[in-house]
Each structure stands twice: as C-alpha cells, then as structure tokens.
Design a protein around this nucleic acid. Structure first.
Lengths: 155, 155
DNA sequence: GATTGACCTCGACCACGCTCGAAATCCTAG
DNA sequence: CTAGGATTTCGAGCGTGGTCGAGGTCAATC
C-alpha cells in the first residue's frame, strides 16, 4: 500500500515534493480529515488560496501545512473558528496590523491560561472525591459512602 | 428589588431554609440558569428527585445544591452530560458500585490532566509566536513578519 | 478505451449542550 | 378577589464544529 518508491532525486519520504501534496496526504500529515480540511478552507481559516492542479485538485505546499498546523493548535486550545478566521484575515491583509494580531494572540493566551487555572481549581474537588473513594475502598468500609438521601457526605 | 427582609428566626441570608429554595434561587446560587437546572434534571443528572411543593414547584435543599455543584464541576472540566448521568446512576443505585464510581472519576481525572498537558504543549507554539510578534514590534521592524506568500517565517 | 480510486462541490445532516417560547398553573401582595 | 410575577411542561430552535452522501470529474493503471 504505502510503498516507498526510492527515487534518486527525492529527499526523505516526509519531505514535501515541489508539486505539493494531495488533500489526502495533507490530511494524514495534519491529522485532520479531508472533510475538515475542506471545511476549514470554506470557513475562511486558510490565509492563502490553496494551490490547484490544472484539473482543479488541491495541492498543499509547505506553507499551507504550516498554517494549517497553526490552526490546529489554535483550535486545540479552544479558539473558535471565528477567532481563527479573524486572525487569518489579519494575516491575509498583510503588513500594518501586527499589533492587532498580537492583541488577538495575547488575548487568547490569557484566556487559555485563565481556563487552565479554573480547570485545575475544579479538578481539586474531583481529586478530593477520588481520594475519599480510594481511602474508603482501601479501608473496606465503602458502605459509609454517600447514597441517595443516605447519611454520609461523599457523593 | 433584592430586599433583605431580616427575620428574627432565620440564620444568615445564605442559609437554606428548611422549606428549600425555589428554582430561581437555586439558579442564582449555582450560577446555572433555571432552564439549565430543569434541563439537567430532565437529562438525568440529578441523583434524587427534586422535592416539590404540593403545587408542583421544585424546592431545592442542601443536598440538591451540593450535588448540582458537583455536576457543574464535572461539566466545567469537560465531562459530557452522558458521563455525569452515568455517575449519577451509579450513585443512585446505592452501595455496591463504589469501585465503578472511582473508576469513572479517576478516568475523568486522567483525561483532564492529559488534556491540560496537551493544552500547555499547544500553548507553547502560540506563546512562541506571541514572543516573536512582541520582539519584532518592539524592534520596530514588524515589516519582516509573515504575510501571504511573504518571505519570512512567523505567521 | 475502460476501470478504479481519489478528488471535486454542494447542501444536508449530526451531536452536543443548552436556550427559548407558548400556554397553563401557582401563589403572594394588595 | 384579582393582578402580577414566578414556575410548570413540552417541544422546538440555536450555535458550534464538524461529518457525510450524492452525483460528477480527474488521472493513473490495465
């Protein structure tokens, strides 16, 4: 299937050939589905129009993959599609709005950091409950755990 | 509007009266909307049936609020509704499944911790970009920043 | 030249987690 | 007794982020 066909003039398998990659190959490399790749494009997340073959098929080049990777990082950290589109628009607009780009990224960064802090705060309660369960199960007196309208204190 | 009506025989305003709280009050205390409170109930997240007045209105007591708070913590850490329902079912089933409850919570804990780690990993790239923007903007040579099909390397 | 599989567009559909509106009921204040 | 606001149920609707399928095109292989 994935036969490596050693060609004298080509680099490692992971290098992107000058002709670019098909959408399927791009999908494998980015970890997105081809559907999602097309969706992101439709949604305006992709800065530069993706190159096409004369027959109308997408060819992904280095820069495309790099940009898409940035998109996945932003998504993975919870930035909504709209936010990424906004960022893409700024980048696409070219020089002169770097401060806005910075603002956008910084705001996102702060947002995520705040989210992590909150997450950890909420986790405390859960971890506490886990500890209680563990302790009581180990002690063998799990019967004293909370049950509906029961007497104890650890749901 | 929110007039505090000092009553001799009642404790602090934040104490829950024996008759319980209306859904509106419960909403204010939990930070959820009344819609969401009812939704959670419908969705099977609430372990014990919420008490009702003879006229059919919900009355929330201490335990209800505590349980709902747990639900919000689980939600806030990304546990899906189904997961919380599962947990609620276990608790509702009473004694004998404490190990399952523990498994569920531990799995969630691990899941969230892994998520945080991944989040922080992804944030690195973003923070890196922020640094680059900051550095270049400070240096006043923002023109060298990435633009569509531009020469530089920092989108 | 025919087949085969990857790719194309377009619009519909899905899962999730709420959110809302209508119409009826309750209950408290005047 | 009445008016008003809070609450009830039920079902529909919404925003987000994909995911999918139909029907057609492209291109490498036999």
């Amino acid at each position: 299937m994935v036969e490596v066909n050693p060609q004298p003039n080509s680099g490692p398998v992971h290098a992107i050939p000058p002709v670019g990659l098909s959408i399927g190959e791009a999908a494998r490399r980015t970890g997105l589905s081809v559907h999602t790749l097309r969706y992101y494009e439709r949604a305006g997340l992709v800065v530069t129009p993706v190159d096409r073959t004369h027959g109308g098929r997408r060819r992904y080049h280095q820069l495309d993959l790099e940009w898409i990777t940035i998109c996945t990082r932003l998504r993975a950290t919870g930035m909504p599609i709209k936010g990424i589109r906004r960022y893409a628009e700024l980048v696409a607009a070219g020089r002169g709005n770097e401060d806005e780009r910075l603002d956008l990224l910084e705001a996102h960064l702060d947002h995520v950091l705040a989210g992590i802090a909150e997450l950890q705060e909420n986790l405390k309660l859960i971890a506490h409950k886990v500890d209680i369960y563990r302790g009581r199960l180990a002690a063998g007196d799990a019967d004293r755990l909370w049950a509906p309208r029961g007497p104890s204190s650890a749901p």
